[in-house]
Amino acid sequence: MSEEWRLLQTGYAKAFTNMAVDKAILVSHSKGLVPPTVRFYGWVPPAISIGYFQSLVEEVDLKACQRYGVDCVRRITGGGAVFHDKELTYSLVIAESHPSIPKNILQSYGRICGAVMKGLEQLGINSEYAPINDIVTNCRKISGNAQTRKHQTVLQHGTVLMDVDVDTMFSLLKVPNEKIKDKLIADVKQRVTSIHHCLGKHIRFTQVADAMRRGFEEEFQIHLVEGGLTIEEQTFAEQFEKETFLTEKWNRKR
Protein backbone atom coordinates (compact mmCIF):
# COMPACT_ATOMS: atom_id res chain seq x y z
CA MET A 1 0.00 0.00 0.00
CA SER A 2 1.31 3.43 -0.87
CA GLU A 3 2.26 5.98 1.77
CA GLU A 4 -0.42 8.50 2.75
CA TRP A 5 0.34 12.21 2.79
CA ARG A 6 -2.03 15.00 3.73
CA LEU A 7 -3.60 17.29 1.12
CA LEU A 8 -4.71 20.75 2.22
CA GLN A 9 -6.92 22.78 -0.09
CA THR A 10 -6.99 26.07 1.76
CA GLY A 11 -8.48 28.15 -1.08
CA TYR A 12 -7.84 31.85 -1.48
CA ALA A 13 -6.36 33.95 1.33
CA LYS A 14 -4.33 37.06 1.98
CA ALA A 15 -0.58 36.97 1.33
CA PHE A 16 0.26 37.22 5.04
CA THR A 17 -2.02 34.30 5.92
CA ASN A 18 -0.68 32.19 3.06
CA MET A 19 2.92 32.60 4.15
CA ALA A 20 2.03 32.05 7.80
CA VAL A 21 0.21 28.81 7.01
CA ASP A 22 3.18 27.41 5.04
CA LYS A 23 5.46 28.18 8.00
CA ALA A 24 2.94 26.70 10.46
CA ILE A 25 2.88 23.43 8.51
CA LEU A 26 6.69 23.39 8.43
CA VAL A 27 6.93 23.84 12.20
CA SER A 28 4.17 21.30 12.88
CA HIS A 29 5.73 18.68 10.62
CA SER A 30 9.16 19.23 12.16
CA LYS A 31 7.63 18.42 15.57
CA GLY A 32 6.22 15.19 14.14
CA LEU A 33 2.64 16.39 14.61
CA VAL A 34 1.45 16.07 11.00
CA PRO A 35 2.32 13.88 7.99
CA PRO A 36 4.11 15.15 4.85
CA THR A 37 1.75 17.77 3.46
CA VAL A 38 0.88 19.08 0.01
CA ARG A 39 -1.11 22.30 0.00
CA PHE A 40 -2.86 24.15 -2.84
CA TYR A 41 -3.85 27.79 -2.46
CA GLY A 42 -4.50 31.11 -4.15
CA TRP A 43 -4.12 34.80 -3.34
CA VAL A 44 -6.88 37.33 -2.66
CA PRO A 45 -6.22 40.18 -3.05
CA PRO A 46 -3.45 39.65 -5.64
CA ALA A 47 -0.08 40.05 -3.99
CA ILE A 48 3.63 40.36 -4.51
CA SER A 49 5.92 38.09 -2.57
CA ILE A 50 9.60 38.91 -2.44
CA GLY A 51 12.46 36.53 -1.76
CA TYR A 52 14.02 36.40 1.70
CA PHE A 53 17.13 38.30 0.53
CA GLN A 54 15.42 40.96 -1.55
CA SER A 55 14.91 44.56 -0.56
CA LEU A 56 11.21 45.46 -0.47
CA VAL A 57 11.70 49.10 -1.40
CA GLU A 58 14.20 48.33 -4.15
CA GLU A 59 12.06 45.64 -5.81
CA VAL A 60 8.50 46.87 -5.34
CA ASP A 61 6.67 50.08 -6.25
CA LEU A 62 4.76 50.29 -2.98
CA LYS A 63 2.64 53.26 -4.05
CA ALA A 64 1.51 51.41 -7.17
CA CYS A 65 0.67 48.36 -5.04
CA GLN A 66 -1.46 50.56 -2.80
CA ARG A 67 -3.28 51.99 -5.85
CA TYR A 68 -3.97 48.51 -7.24
CA GLY A 69 -4.88 47.02 -3.82
CA VAL A 70 -2.00 44.56 -4.03
CA ASP A 71 -0.46 43.26 -0.78
CA CYS A 72 3.29 42.67 -0.34
CA VAL A 73 4.98 40.08 1.80
CA ARG A 74 8.49 38.76 2.35
CA ARG A 75 8.83 34.97 2.01
CA ILE A 76 10.95 32.76 4.25
CA THR A 77 12.35 31.30 1.02
CA GLY A 78 14.94 32.91 -1.24
CA GLY A 79 14.41 33.65 -4.92
CA GLY A 80 12.83 36.55 -6.74
CA ALA A 81 9.78 38.78 -6.56
CA VAL A 82 6.55 37.17 -7.79
CA PHE A 83 3.23 38.77 -8.70
CA HIS A 84 0.60 36.29 -7.52
CA ASP A 85 -2.65 36.75 -9.36
CA LYS A 86 -4.18 34.09 -11.59
CA GLU A 87 -2.27 31.06 -10.43
CA LEU A 88 -2.33 27.98 -8.29
CA THR A 89 0.33 27.96 -5.61
CA TYR A 90 1.45 24.69 -4.10
CA SER A 91 3.57 23.96 -1.08
CA LEU A 92 5.15 20.71 0.01
CA VAL A 93 6.39 20.17 3.55
CA ILE A 94 8.37 17.00 4.19
CA ALA A 95 11.26 15.78 6.35
CA GLU A 96 14.74 16.22 4.87
CA SER A 97 15.35 12.58 5.77
CA HIS A 98 12.40 11.27 3.75
CA PRO A 99 13.73 8.76 1.19
CA SER A 100 11.91 10.56 -1.65
CA ILE A 101 13.79 13.80 -1.02
CA PRO A 102 17.35 14.04 -2.37
CA LYS A 103 19.84 15.38 0.19
CA ASN A 104 21.29 17.64 -2.48
CA ILE A 105 19.19 20.81 -2.55
CA LEU A 106 19.30 21.38 -6.30
CA GLN A 107 18.37 17.75 -6.95
CA SER A 108 15.47 18.06 -4.54
CA TYR A 109 14.18 21.08 -6.49
CA GLY A 110 14.19 18.88 -9.59
CA ARG A 111 12.39 16.05 -7.82
CA ILE A 112 9.62 18.24 -6.39
CA CYS A 113 9.26 20.11 -9.68
CA GLY A 114 8.71 16.66 -11.20
CA ALA A 115 5.35 16.53 -9.42
CA VAL A 116 4.32 19.88 -10.94
CA MET A 117 5.47 18.70 -14.37
CA LYS A 118 3.40 15.52 -14.07
CA GLY A 119 0.46 17.70 -13.02
CA LEU A 120 0.89 19.89 -16.10
CA GLU A 121 1.05 16.73 -18.20
CA GLN A 122 -2.41 15.82 -16.89
CA LEU A 123 -3.61 19.06 -18.48
CA GLY A 124 -1.88 18.21 -21.76
CA ILE A 125 1.15 20.44 -21.25
CA ASN A 126 4.64 18.99 -21.65
CA SER A 127 7.22 20.78 -19.58
CA GLU A 128 10.73 20.43 -18.25
CA TYR A 129 12.71 21.48 -15.22
CA ALA A 130 14.96 24.47 -15.89
CA PRO A 131 17.50 24.76 -13.06
CA ILE A 132 17.77 26.52 -10.71
CA ASN A 133 14.11 26.87 -9.88
CA ASP A 134 11.88 27.13 -12.94
CA ILE A 135 9.65 24.87 -15.00
CA VAL A 136 9.39 25.74 -18.68
CA THR A 137 7.25 24.66 -21.59
CA ASN A 138 8.52 25.40 -25.09
CA CYS A 139 11.33 27.38 -23.44
CA ARG A 140 8.83 29.64 -21.63
CA LYS A 141 8.44 29.76 -17.87
CA ILE A 142 5.16 28.40 -16.50
CA SER A 143 6.22 27.79 -12.89
CA GLY A 144 8.66 29.32 -10.40
CA ASN A 145 9.68 27.55 -7.21
CA ALA A 146 11.52 28.30 -3.96
CA GLN A 147 12.72 26.09 -1.15
CA THR A 148 13.90 26.49 2.40
CA ARG A 149 15.13 23.91 4.90
CA LYS A 150 14.60 24.47 8.60
CA HIS A 151 14.45 22.10 11.60
CA GLN A 152 15.43 19.17 9.31
CA THR A 153 12.34 19.92 7.24
CA VAL A 154 11.94 20.95 3.61
CA LEU A 155 9.39 23.55 2.55
CA GLN A 156 9.11 24.12 -1.17
CA HIS A 157 6.43 26.36 -2.57
CA GLY A 158 5.85 27.43 -6.13
CA THR A 159 3.49 28.92 -8.64
CA VAL A 160 1.64 27.34 -11.51
CA LEU A 161 0.65 30.18 -13.80
CA MET A 162 -2.95 29.92 -14.96
CA ASP A 163 -2.86 33.30 -16.70
CA VAL A 164 -0.31 36.07 -16.76
CA ASP A 165 -0.49 39.86 -16.96
CA VAL A 166 3.04 41.10 -17.58
CA ASP A 167 1.98 44.76 -17.95
CA THR A 168 0.36 44.87 -14.50
CA MET A 169 3.30 42.97 -13.05
CA PHE A 170 5.71 45.61 -14.34
CA SER A 171 3.60 48.45 -13.05
CA LEU A 172 4.07 46.96 -9.56
CA LEU A 173 7.72 45.95 -9.69
CA LYS A 174 10.61 48.37 -9.98
CA VAL A 175 12.95 47.90 -12.92
CA PRO A 176 16.66 48.65 -12.68
CA ASN A 177 16.60 50.92 -15.70
CA GLU A 178 13.42 52.83 -16.69
CA LYS A 179 14.85 53.53 -20.15
CA ILE A 180 14.76 49.88 -21.14
CA LYS A 181 11.47 49.09 -19.40
CA ASP A 182 9.54 48.61 -22.66
CA LYS A 183 12.13 46.19 -23.99
CA LEU A 184 12.19 44.34 -20.68
CA ILE A 185 8.40 43.94 -20.74
CA ALA A 186 8.55 42.66 -24.34
CA ASP A 187 11.30 40.17 -23.35
CA VAL A 188 9.40 38.87 -20.35
CA LYS A 189 6.24 38.45 -22.46
CA GLN A 190 8.31 36.19 -24.73
CA ARG A 191 9.77 34.23 -21.84
CA VAL A 192 6.66 33.62 -19.70
CA THR A 193 3.56 31.62 -20.49
CA SER A 194 0.50 30.21 -18.71
CA ILE A 195 -1.94 27.33 -18.82
CA HIS A 196 -4.45 29.65 -20.53
CA HIS A 197 -1.92 30.56 -23.19
CA CYS A 198 -0.79 26.96 -23.74
CA LEU A 199 -4.26 25.48 -24.04
CA GLY A 200 -6.05 28.45 -25.59
CA LYS A 201 -8.81 28.20 -23.01
CA HIS A 202 -9.45 29.02 -19.37
CA ILE A 203 -9.12 26.19 -16.87
CA ARG A 204 -10.67 26.47 -13.43
CA PHE A 205 -8.53 26.53 -10.27
CA THR A 206 -10.13 23.26 -9.11
CA GLN A 207 -9.20 21.52 -12.39
CA VAL A 208 -5.59 22.63 -12.00
CA ALA A 209 -5.66 21.45 -8.38
CA ASP A 210 -7.00 18.03 -9.45
CA ALA A 211 -4.23 17.73 -12.03
CA MET A 212 -1.55 18.75 -9.53
CA ARG A 213 -2.91 16.29 -6.98
CA ARG A 214 -2.43 13.48 -9.50
CA GLY A 215 1.00 14.90 -10.37
CA PHE A 216 2.17 14.67 -6.74
CA GLU A 217 0.64 11.21 -6.29
CA GLU A 218 2.36 9.88 -9.40
CA GLU A 219 5.75 11.49 -8.81
CA PHE A 220 6.04 10.36 -5.20
CA GLN A 221 3.96 7.15 -5.52
CA ILE A 222 1.79 8.25 -2.60
CA HIS A 223 -1.87 8.68 -1.82
CA LEU A 224 -3.01 12.19 -0.89
CA VAL A 225 -5.71 12.27 1.76
CA GLU A 226 -7.64 15.49 2.03
CA GLY A 227 -7.53 17.03 5.50
CA GLY A 228 -7.53 20.32 7.36
CA LEU A 229 -5.10 22.34 9.44
CA THR A 230 -4.82 21.07 13.00
CA ILE A 231 -5.78 23.38 15.87
CA GLU A 232 -2.10 23.75 16.67
CA GLU A 233 -1.28 24.70 13.06
CA GLN A 234 -4.05 27.29 13.11
CA THR A 235 -2.63 28.73 16.32
CA PHE A 236 0.89 28.79 14.86
CA ALA A 237 -0.39 30.40 11.65
CA GLU A 238 -2.22 33.15 13.54
CA GLN A 239 0.88 33.80 15.61
CA PHE A 240 3.26 33.89 12.60
CA GLU A 241 0.89 36.12 10.65
CA LYS A 242 0.62 38.63 13.48
CA GLU A 243 4.20 38.50 14.74
CA THR A 244 6.03 38.17 11.43
CA PHE A 245 4.33 38.43 8.05
CA LEU A 246 2.12 41.42 8.85
CA THR A 247 4.96 43.41 10.40
CA GLU A 248 6.99 46.17 8.78
CA LYS A 249 9.98 44.83 10.67
CA TRP A 250 9.84 41.58 8.71
CA ASN A 251 8.71 42.90 5.36
CA ARG A 252 11.23 45.75 5.33
CA LYS A 253 14.06 43.85 6.96
CA ARG A 254 16.12 44.28 3.76
Binding site: F53, Q54, S55, T77, G78, I105, I132, Q147, T148, R149
Partner: peptide, 29 residues
Protein backbone atom coordinates in the same frame (compact mmCIF):
# COMPACT_ATOMS: atom_id res chain seq x y z
CA UNK B 1 21.21 38.74 -9.55
CA UNK B 2 23.31 40.08 -6.69
CA UNK B 3 22.90 43.62 -5.33
CA UNK B 4 25.31 45.13 -2.83
CA UNK B 5 24.89 48.27 -0.74
CA UNK B 6 28.26 49.15 0.71
CA UNK B 7 29.51 51.76 3.10
CA UNK B 8 33.29 51.89 3.37
CA UNK B 9 36.11 53.94 4.83
CA UNK B 10 37.95 55.68 2.01
CA UNK B 11 41.11 56.10 4.04
CA UNK B 12 41.51 52.58 5.37
CA UNK B 13 39.66 50.97 2.45
CA UNK B 14 37.74 48.75 4.82
CA UNK B 15 34.05 47.79 4.98
CA UNK B 16 31.95 49.79 7.46
CA UNK B 17 28.56 48.31 6.62
CA UNK B 18 27.27 45.94 3.98
CA UNK B 19 23.84 44.76 2.86
CA UNK B 20 23.66 41.85 0.44
CA UNK B 21 20.38 41.48 -1.46
CA UNK B 22 19.15 39.65 -4.53
CA UNK B 23 17.12 36.71 -5.82
CA UNK B 24 19.68 34.02 -4.91
CA UNK B 25 19.22 31.21 -2.38
CA UNK B 26 21.31 30.67 0.74
CA UNK B 27 20.88 27.98 3.40
CA UNK B 28 20.39 28.63 6.24
CA UNK B 29 18.95 32.01 5.27
Amino acid sequence: LLKINLEYDETTHRILHIRITGDFFAYPE
